[in-house]
């Protein structure tokens, strides 16, 4: 029951992102007489600084957000898991090198490396995805490595090795399935992180370029007109926060559910 609200919010916006193009939206239509108009009968969230309907732009922004989030999480999860698994399973000097590389990437605080990469490669959605997945895969690599290190010691792996199963098969059939649960939990939190990071990069002018819309760039445009048109900052921010809050709450539940130790007896 407590899951209903966050799940509803997430599905609603995911639906907007997927089926937005089917709606009759005009995110680039300029209504010069309605510039910065407050929410009213003809556009329920009002208009932006160029006279474009804010609601339509927010729906298109959702598409940007989820598009980036999906790609970044999929790429980082696949690459990170591959790197971490390879390190832990092979072990030795190879693992040592991978741990060092992970350490070096973790030495860049927060979003800094993504800002630097996106800034140097130039703005655009592709570069945002590249920058955020370069940073994002490190977390997955570390998690996968820790998981595989402990799974490697288990008896069923020893048995498989003794039976002469090839290593590639052992990793795919006997190791990776056991790492899935924590990786999926990590991925769910990563979605929230990427949504914020994409909006942050776009806020700094390093993300999507006009006339494309992103929640972050709408907030940035809005900061210039806060006194006359606070709706331009308030609306995208509230939606962004609700989506992130929903994803984090769902992630919390997912983590408790996956972790049998905290799973409540039904």
């Amino acid at each position: 029951m407590r899951l209903g609200l966050p799940l509803g919010i997430l599905l609603l916006w995911l639906g907007m992102a997927m089926f937005g193009p089917l709606l009759d939206l005009q995110p680039d239509h300029i209504e010069l007489s309605r510039i910065l108009a407050s929410p009213g009968s003809d556009a329920w969230l009002g208009y932006d600084d160029l006279g474009r309907p804010l609601w339509d732009r927010l729906v298109v922004g959702a598409r940007t957000s989820f598009f980036v989030a999906l790609w970044v999480v999929v790429i980082s999860a696949l690459m990170g898991t591959a790197i971490g698994t390879a390190g832990a399973y092979v072990g030795g000097a190879w693992d040592h090198v991978i741990v060092r590389i992970i350490d070096i990437f973790l030495a860049f605080p927060g979003i800094l490396l993504a800002i630097a990469m996106a800034g140097l490669m130039g703005p655009g959605v592709d570069n945002v995805i590249i920058a955020l997945s370069t940073v994002g895969r490190v977390g997955f690599a570390r998690l996968a490595r820790a998981q595989v290190l402990s799974i490697k010691q288990r008896l069923h792996i020893e048995a498989a090795v003794a039976m002469g199963v090839r290593h590639a098969r052992i990793v795919i059939r006997h190791v990776l399935p056991l790492t899935l649960a924590p990786l999926i939990v990590e991925a769910s939190f990563a979605v929230a992180g990427v949504v914020i990071a994409e909006a942050g990069l776009s806020f700094l002018g390093l993300g999507v370029q006009p006339p494309a819309a992103s929640w972050g760039s709408i907030i940035r445009d809005g900061t210039r007109y806060m006194l006359v048109a606070p709706h331009m900052v308030l609306a995208p921010g509230i939606i962004l926060m609700l989506v992130v809050l929903a994803v984090n709450l769902l992630g919390d539940h997912l983590r408790d559910w996956v972790d049998v130790r905290t799973r409540r007896v039904l």
Binding site: G200, L204, V233, P236, G237, M241
Partner: peptide
């Protein structure tokens, strides 16, 4: 605290400006 974690800086900042400055 959950709200605090979910609010990005680039929105909390403008929000505080709006309330306390403007």
């Amino acid at each position: 605290s959950l709200l605090g974690i979910s609010i990005p800086h680039f929105w909390l900042g403008p929000l505080l400006i709006l309330i306390f400055s403007l």
